[in-house]
Design a protein around this nucleic acid. Structure first.
Lengths: 205, 205
DNA sequence: TCGTTTCCTTGACGACTGTCAAGAGTTTTC
DNA sequence: GAAAACTCTTGACAGTCGTCAAGGAAACGA
């Protein structure tokens, strides 16, 4: 019914509303987490009422998965200009480490939401497909950095994409937790750790 | 009132009941996760009724923190005999990797519970103290392995304890998720990845 | 054996949850 | 300008949740 009745407005407006609702929901989700963010709370922090959710989404799960998918879509290009801008291996590492620190400060709620969702997917099977897919795009994102780093250094990566992603993700997660706990020096630590780790991801010269 | 009235039974029985309840709760928590495990469900899977929880614990949070603390207490010695038994660096790595794979198979529910709780602590401040403390003991556990590995290899570690822990934890978490998703070859991958990573944790010979 | 303390069950409470139907309000269509 | 379609609000529903009080059951000390 809603498809292709007019030239472009109906379906587009529908999608735009979904996007607006999703972005509103993301704020609340990032603040409260997956389990404690109720649809009413999400709606309260938006310009809509709590009933509208079921007009644009079938489920609470549908909404949340849409939210995180929407978020990751912009997230996976975070290091694109790091990759493009860097002219040497050392510069790439510096830019990459800085960007990691920057996003841990600016987007901590989004990151903890992602880790929350990924942990939930270990229990809730209906989340796994989306989580695995997003995890794959994040892995690709990291691999673009690592492979470019290798090219600039004139060396080939010594690890497969999942390993490189797993290692960096481990450090990042640790830094995020400590950052949220207000620990001092976490950001500098992360920067140093990443700078020390990156060379190990390549074959010895 | 309950302290030191008789020789040892009253307080001991209290603690034993707490332990029994906690172990019962751990089964349910490992199955459902932090958010979806209700006190009634926890009690149903035990020999008690749902009201007894507030006799031994002040809170749901009190119960859960006690549960995870109780679990980690036994968990942190998992690699002790790996450290003691190994007579060469290579053997230690093999034993360590095997033990990692073993626990990912045997205790997957406990591990996902831990990651769930750690993610929740990013939102719920009241969880952080316990989580940070447990995280520290896990880090120490890993460091015992790494430092012994270095001694056996006659080389000094190239990374600080948090980094070594963060890297290995990242790989482990990734393997756990994939294992729960039923992906094939995850365990062999983890074994190979750990064997490849460990030498990088030491200074070049 | 009686009274007291400890232990545990039952049942209820208020609050909160996701969901959805009924119906206003708004826009579009003819 | 009436009719139809779309958009959103309101209010209620059936559950579930953590919590706790009342009271029975059992163990204990005398």
């Amino acid at each position: 019914m809603t498809t292709a009745t007019a030239r472009r407005t109906p379906a587009d407006k529908h999608d735009e509303r979904r996007r607006a609702l999703a972005e509103s929901a993301l704020r609340t989700l990032g603040e409260l987490g997956y389990a404690r963010a109720s649809l009413r709370e999400i709606a309260n922090n938006s310009e809509f009422s709590h009933g509208v959710v079921h007009y644009y989404f079938t489920d609470k799960l549908d909404l949340i998965v849409h939210c995180v998918r929407h978020y990751k879509a912009s997230c996976v290009h975070r290091y694109d200009d790091v990759v493009e801008r860097a002219t040497s291996a050392e510069e790439l590492v510096d830019l990459f480490a800085d960007k990691l620190v920057e996003t841990i400060v600016d987007e901590a709620p989004m990151h903890r939401l992602w880790y929350d969702l990924r942990a939930q997917s270990m229990f809730e099977e209906s989340l796994r497909e989306a989580v695995l897919q997003i995890d794959g795009t994040l892995q690709d994102m990291i691999w673009r950095v690592v492979s470019t780093y290798g090219e600039l250094a004139g060396r080939t990566p010594s690890m497969e994409p999942p390993v490189a992603y797993g290692l960096l993700d481990g450090l990042f997660q640790q830094a995020l937790l400590n950052h949220l706990c207000g620990t001092e020096g976490v950001l500098d630590d992360l920067r140093r750790q990443v700078r020390a780790l990156m060379p190990l991801l390549l074959q010895p010269a």
